[in-house]
Design a protein around this nucleic acid. Sequence first.
DNA 1: ATCCAAGGTTCAATGAATGAACTTCCCTGC
DNA 2: GCAGGGAAGTTCATTCATTGAACCTTGGAT
Lengths: 175, 175
Amino acid sequence: MPLGKDYARQECSIARALEIVGERWTLLVVRDALYGVRRYNDFLIHLGAPRAVLAARLQALIAEGILEKRRYQQSPPRDEYVVTQRGLALWPTLRSLGLWGREHFGEAKLRIFQHADCGTELGPYGECPTCGTVVPVPDVLMVPGPGLDPDPADPVSRALLKPKRLLEPIETGQG
Amino acid sequence: MPLGKDYARQECSIARALEIVGERWTLLVVRDALYGVRRYNDFLIHLGAPRAVLAARLQALIAEGILEKRRYQQSPPRDEYVVTQRGLALWPTLRSLGLWGREHFGEAKLRIFQHADCGTELGPYGECPTCGTVVPVPDVLMVPGPGLDPDPADPVSRALLKPKRLLEPIETGQG
DNA sequence: ATCCAAGGTTCAATGAATGAACTTCCCTGC
DNA sequence: GCAGGGAAGTTCATTCATTGAACCTTGGAT
């Protein structure tokens, strides 16, 4: 494989990780999955990625055990993509990447993550400063920050305006 | 810009971050820079990336303020690339990405990161469990793990076998 | 019988990555 | 004074990936 996604010469866990989630769009798919996006069309709308690329990335993420395809209705047959434990484990990475992006390149705070139990905003490592524990992903409450467009065009972005816990499926109103 | 590195439709700090460090090779360049690699040829040898791509990535990283070009000798004029504060701030992201890669896809531990002051192995967020503090990057001691090839071919990998602090420049023996 | 929506696949065009070859600058040895 | 060499790139044809638009399929709903 002369070109492509691998880093053959690297003896490094970071390189291994990047071979799996380092391609264009991949980490954003995982992000959306953590935010509660589950359906092909919702990923498509929210990401704006080409259909073929999205399909390929979903396939790859399933093959690596990061997402799982699950039938949620029989007729017509419809599947949804949900994150596995392995996908969940990417939360600290995404959190720190987002934090870095905001601190060094972002203007306003776009999304705020809180401990659902006590309302405290999470620290840089996903911990709750009040409770002194690392907050499990399902207990993270995501609320819109001041920098977020209050009236976005697409229904997925609109659904993501409502405060909600991570992983909790979004409600597009067209469901 | 119809194709390329940006994620125009995304209103998200993670997407902003990925526009900057999400391209192929970029995060590995930053990783190497944190490990103490500083010279074009050393990056080249250690990464195995095409020369043109490496040059482009170094340029981009400088433009974004993640690396800094610094003259380290006048004649012949030679520059080295060193990480800035902004680049340093990527350490938690790289750390958690590497941890995820190892826990979910790696076999053995390749590199071990310790608190230089006390020798304790770092926790998942770069903290020292003994001292109870987040360890500053220059105080992180990197030692080879059991899974690392003890006799690598290239001189940079060989230099990275010696226990050393992050950021401390490598010694290739040909310097 | 026709329309529609979800979830894809196919395809030509474009842009990025690759590896090899070439260039430049300056130093060192003969 | 000249040949050779290393560091740090640039150039270029080829290969691969991404893009966006169009098309396809399945199974309701009208």
